[in-house]
Amino acid sequence: MFLEEGVTDRPDEVRGAPLRIHDQAAVVQFEYGDAWVVSARGSYDMYSITPLAEALDTAAEAHRKVVLDASGITFGDSTLLNLLILTHHKADLRVAAPTQQVRRLLEITGADTLLKVRATVAEAAAC
């Protein structure tokens, strides 16, 4: 593979300068009524999805109703979308308070017609 001078094949480097791909991702979990809430913060792509994927997978195995609090997700790509659809097949997944970027991702792909998207965690847990 031939690369331009100064360009590497590492995803975190472009023309020799570090590239910040995503914000620090964090996941917090808690029970809310009869639902299990997974609250995600930060940016999610193929490099940062693992903690969220593990949390949603564990939640889907242990709880019938899972709510993803998406209010803190600053970026999500097809990796996040794929995770949501896979989780939807394992459990009753609800997406609560998605940010504008996440809402747009769901709308463009039509996933908003498949997933239960609600304005708040309380509303998502109640329905």
Rank of each mutant, 00 (worst) to 15 (best):
residue 15 R to H: 11
residue 1 M to W: 15
residue 103 R to S: 13
residue 49 I to K: 03
residue 73 I to N: 05
residue 85 I to Q: 06
residue 124 A to V: 09
residue 88 H to S: 06
residue 112 D to K: 07
residue 91 A to S: 14
residue 51 P to I: 11
residue 53 A to M: 14
residue 54 E to P: 02
residue 27 V to F: 07
residue 61 E to H: 06
residue 56 L to V: 03
residue 20 R to Q: 15
residue 46 M to I: 15
residue 69 D to N: 15
residue 23 D to W: 08
residue 12 D to K: 08
residue 116 K to Y: 08
residue 117 V to G: 03
residue 52 L to P: 01
residue 103 R to V: 01
residue 61 E to P: 01
residue 38 V to C: 07
residue 86 L to K: 15
residue 20 R to M: 09
residue 103 R to H: 10
residue 41 R to F: 02
residue 64 R to N: 10
residue 32 Y to S: 10
residue 91 A to C: 15
residue 17 A to Q: 12
residue 83 L to M: 05
residue 13 E to N: 01
residue 72 G to I: 11
residue 107 E to H: 02
residue 60 A to S: 15
residue 5 E to V: 15
residue 42 G to A: 01
residue 92 D to Y: 07
residue 80 L to N: 07
residue 114 L to Q: 07
residue 102 V to W: 04
residue 8 T to W: 11
residue 112 D to C: 05
residue 74 T to K: 13
residue 40 A to C: 09
residue 103 R to D: 11
residue 113 T to H: 12
residue 122 A to F: 04
residue 22 H to P: 01
residue 107 E to C: 00
residue 113 T to A: 13
residue 76 G to L: 05
residue 115 L to G: 01
residue 9 D to M: 12
residue 51 P to A: 10
residue 16 G to M: 06
residue 46 M to W: 12
residue 119 A to S: 09
residue 83 L to K: 03
residue 103 R to F: 05
residue 86 L to H: 12
residue 37 V to W: 01
residue 89 H to P: 03
residue 127 C to W: 08
residue 26 A to N: 11
residue 89 H to Q: 12
residue 73 I to V: 10
residue 10 R to Y: 11
residue 83 L to F: 09
residue 89 H to T: 10
residue 94 R to V: 03
residue 19 L to M: 14
residue 111 A to E: 07
residue 65 K to I: 05
residue 69 D to C: 11
residue 119 A to P: 13
residue 126 A to K: 09
residue 93 L to S: 02
residue 36 W to K: 05
residue 72 G to K: 13
residue 9 D to Y: 13
residue 125 A to E: 03
residue 29 Q to W: 08
residue 99 T to Y: 02
residue 110 G to Y: 02
residue 5 E to A: 14
residue 49 I to S: 00
residue 118 R to V: 03
residue 59 A to F: 10
residue 44 Y to S: 04
residue 17 A to R: 15
residue 18 P to Q: 06
residue 64 R to H: 13
residue 108 I to K: 06
residue 70 A to F: 08
residue 125 A to T: 00
residue 67 V to K: 01
residue 57 D to G: 07
residue 10 R to F: 13
residue 14 V to Y: 11
residue 21 I to D: 05
residue 127 C to I: 05
residue 14 V to W: 11
residue 87 T to I: 12
residue 86 L to I: 13
residue 13 E to R: 12
residue 73 I to D: 03
residue 105 L to A: 08
residue 112 D to G: 01
residue 100 Q to K: 10
residue 14 V to M: 11
residue 82 N to Y: 11
residue 56 L to A: 00
residue 65 K to P: 00
residue 100 Q to H: 11
residue 56 L to R: 03
residue 108 I to F: 05
residue 42 G to N: 05
residue 51 P to S: 11
residue 17 A to Y: 09
residue 102 V to G: 04
residue 124 A to D: 04
residue 9 D to T: 13
residue 111 A to Y: 06
residue 123 E to G: 06
residue 109 T to M: 07
residue 45 D to W: 07
residue 44 Y to F: 15
residue 120 T to K: 01
residue 34 D to N: 09
residue 116 K to I: 12
residue 124 A to H: 02
residue 36 W to P: 00
residue 97 A to Y: 04
residue 66 V to C: 06
residue 41 R to A: 11
residue 96 A to S: 04
residue 13 E to Y: 00
residue 87 T to Y: 08
residue 82 N to S: 15
residue 74 T to D: 13
residue 23 D to L: 12
residue 58 T to H: 12
residue 1 M to Y: 15
residue 10 R to A: 14
residue 13 E to V: 14
residue 106 L to I: 03
residue 50 T to L: 14
residue 31 E to I: 08
